[in-house]
């Protein structure tokens, strides 16, 4: 085989683009809906009559704290699964399916493999408990304006993309 001695591909690391992050977030969000929330939806819906959408369910549960208390084990399990799902992907693969499509990678601030404690802190916000729920609103907003999640700023984690030239 003739060695053409072509120059090697050079890789550049850059902060992930805002658009790619948003789209990959939605892909991961839809996947979680299908894989984890989907199987549980029947269990939850069976206990909330007359619910027609998520917002109504939420309102209903707010108005019926006993119901929330009864459903707590299911909700905790659901969100624990979400947490474990994110953790496994992020710790072992440094990415998630949505991010993988766009070649995005989760790294520490020094471009190294992120520390597990930082990843736990990053993903614990999935639990629907105050004050984590603040991040449910703050994170996407911060991402839209700065291209970085607020929790990433706190946990010193960043999402990068590898560009080969």
């Amino acid at each position: 085989m003739i060695d053409l001695k072509l120059p090697k591909k050079r890789m550049m690391i850059a902060d992930a683009s805002k658009l790619k992050r948003i789209v990959s977030f939605f892909i991961d969000f839809i996947l979680v809906q299908i894989i984890i929330f989907g199987p549980f939806s029947g269990v939850v819906q069976n206990q909330i009559p007359m619910s027609t959408n998520f917002q109504e369910n939420l309102l209903f549960m707010e108005q019926n704290p006993d119901l929330l208390y009864e459903l707590a084990p299911v909700l905790f399990t659901m969100f624990f699964l979400v947490f474990a799902y994110f953790m496994i992907f992020e710790y072992f693969m440094q990415t998630k399916p949505g991010k993988l499509i766009f070649g995005l990678k989760i790294v520490g601030i020094e471009n190294s493999k992120p520390n597990i404690l930082r990843l736990i802190a990053r993903n614990v916000v999935a639990f629907p408990v105050f004050p984590f729920t603040i991040f449910w609103i703050a994170d996407p907003l911060y991402l839209i304006f700065t291209g970085q999640r607020l929790i990433d700023k706190f946990t010193q984690i960043k999402v990068i993309e590898e560009i080969y030239v």
């Binding site: 890789m11 996947l31 299908i34 894989i35 984890i36 989907g38 199987p39 549980f40 029947g42 269990v43 069976n46 084990p73 299911v74 399990t77 659901m78 699964l81 474990a84 799902y85 496994i88 992907f89 693969m93 990415t95 399916p97 993988l100 990678k105 590898e162 080969y164």
Partner: peptide
């Protein structure tokens, strides 16, 4: 850095979580 993540591992994790979710949902049901 450029290693392609084996697709089957990703599908395995997704499938695993899906099955676990179904089993747990059935138990709760």
């Amino acid at each position: 850095m450029n290693k392609k993540k084996p697709l089957f591992i990703i599908l395995g994790i997704i499938g695993g979580f899906w099955i676990i979710s179904i089993i747990l949902a059935a138990i709760f049901g």
